[in-house]
Design a protein around this nucleic acid. Sequence first.
DNA 1: GCCAACGTTGGC
DNA 2: GCCAACGTTGGC
Length: 154
Amino acid sequence: MAYWLMKTEPSAYSLDDLEREGVTHWEGVRNYQARNFMRDDMKVGDAVLVYHSNINPAGIVGLGRIVREAYPDHFAWNRESKYFDERSTPAKPLWFMVDVAFVARFSKMVTLQQIKEDPALVGIMVAKRGSRLSIQPMEEAHFRYISKLGGLSE
DNA sequence: GCCAACGTTGGC
DNA sequence: GCCAACGTTGGC
């Protein structure tokens, strides 16, 4: 089982939305490195830290779980969608998505600043300068530590 | 809303 | 295949 961090802009889709819906399809990933993580490495049961970006403060707000492995992101085939990409076709899909289920909400958000300042989290990808990757692998120890900071124990 | 950092595109 | 121009991300 692997551990991941997935970014979302809460103005577009928040942990609240995920809690309300229970499960969502994580469409719109349009970066090759992030796509490859989803397509090649994400498995059902993998654990996810949900990260709110583009908001002040940014940070991790809760947990999710992968409940369906990668399948074609059909929003890429829809001209009406903002995720439309004419290079992707049903015969030869270019972009993929997974399904993510809500697991838990942190009782307190773990902010990016907190992550950067914590000696236990040195080297974590999300704290690296200029890290724009929207899907990142996590170390299990970091995942557990952040969950604890967020007020969850396992 | 600004803008630095970074990924992608396309001319050559 | 280099690299300048361009578009996007995302912290602040």
